[in-house]
Amino acid sequence: MNINEKRYTLAILVNNHPGVLMRVVSLFSRRGYNIDSLSVGETEQEMISRITIVVTGDRPVVEQIKKQVGKLIDVKRVYEMTQNKSLQRELIMVKVSTKNENRSEVVELAQIFKAKIIDVTSGTVTLEMTGSLDKIQSFLDLMMPFGIVEMARTGITALERGGRALSSISLSEDEQ
């Protein structure tokens, strides 16, 4: 990442139809943009899905991405989620190598970070944690010396702070 690049989180509201995600993601790949994180799911309205994409780039590139995505069929809205005006979280599951002499240290760190122990074997502890990118990275940095056996991440999911809902799109608005 160069000095002008930073991470941007985009919330994209789309019609919940087969192939929509593929069209959005293929736009990124055709243009040579890398997706750092991708999370998709239905909203409170089953006919609308929310795609949350984190990309790294400079401001002009992100503006171009927003415009191009906004032109795609079935895209209802593209919204940039800023750090201070949104709540952004990720779920991570991480399997850490443990021995009898260091297991208590892993458990103690898990408690400090509010990670949940979901499995224990004679040689590993598997943890589940939700948090911001910074919190998750700090946790992973502390787990590295023990040995990370396996890891899975969901990607960022984000909602705007406050009472406004991005996905409050009624069908009547779309038909006008």
Rank of each mutant, 00 (worst) to 15 (best):
V62I: 15
M47L: 12
K95D: 04
T43K: 01
S97F: 04
Q64W: 08
N84K: 14
F113K: 01
E46Q: 11
E46H: 13
D74G: 03
E101L: 03
L72F: 09
K66V: 12
I48P: 05
T82V: 07
V96T: 09
T56R: 07
F113A: 07
K85E: 15
N84V: 11
A110I: 05
L87G: 09
D58V: 03
R50Q: 12
E101S: 15
L91T: 11
M81D: 08
I65F: 06
I65T: 11
Q64A: 11
K99M: 02
L109H: 12
K99N: 12
I92H: 08
Y79G: 02
V106P: 06
Q64H: 13
N100D: 14
V62E: 10
N102M: 00
T56L: 02
L87F: 13
G70C: 03
Q83L: 11
K76M: 14
M81H: 06
D74W: 01
I92K: 06
G57T: 04
T52S: 07
A115P: 08
I48S: 05
S97I: 01
E63K: 13
Q68P: 05
I92R: 08
N102K: 00
Q68E: 14
Q45R: 13
T82M: 05
R59H: 14
V107P: 09
I73C: 06
E44V: 09
E63Y: 08
E108G: 13
G70L: 00
L109P: 10
I92Y: 11
T43C: 04
V69E: 03
R103K: 15
S86Q: 03
G70H: 07
S97W: 00
V78F: 09
L72M: 11
V54W: 00
S97G: 07
S49H: 05
A110D: 09
F113Q: 05
M93S: 13
R103N: 00
Q88F: 06
K67I: 03
E44M: 03
E44H: 13
Q88K: 10
T43R: 00
K99G: 04
V55L: 02
T98K: 00
K114G: 10
G70A: 03
Q68T: 07
V94G: 08
S104Y: 08
N100E: 11
R89L: 09
S49E: 04
Q111L: 10
K66F: 03
E108P: 04
I65R: 01
V55P: 01
Q68F: 02
K99I: 00
V54Q: 03
I53S: 07
E90D: 13
V62N: 13
L72P: 10
A115G: 11
E46K: 10
K114H: 15
V75L: 01
T43F: 05
L87Q: 12
T82G: 13
E46D: 15
V62S: 08
Q68W: 04
G70Y: 06
K99E: 02
L72N: 10
Q45D: 14
V55H: 04
I51A: 04
E101Q: 12
V69T: 14
D58T: 08
E105F: 01
S86T: 15
P60A: 07
D74R: 01
K114D: 13
S97P: 01
Q45P: 02
E101N: 14
V61W: 02
R77D: 12
V54H: 06
Q68L: 09
V96R: 00
S104P: 07
K95H: 04
V94L: 03
Q68D: 12
R77L: 12
V54T: 14
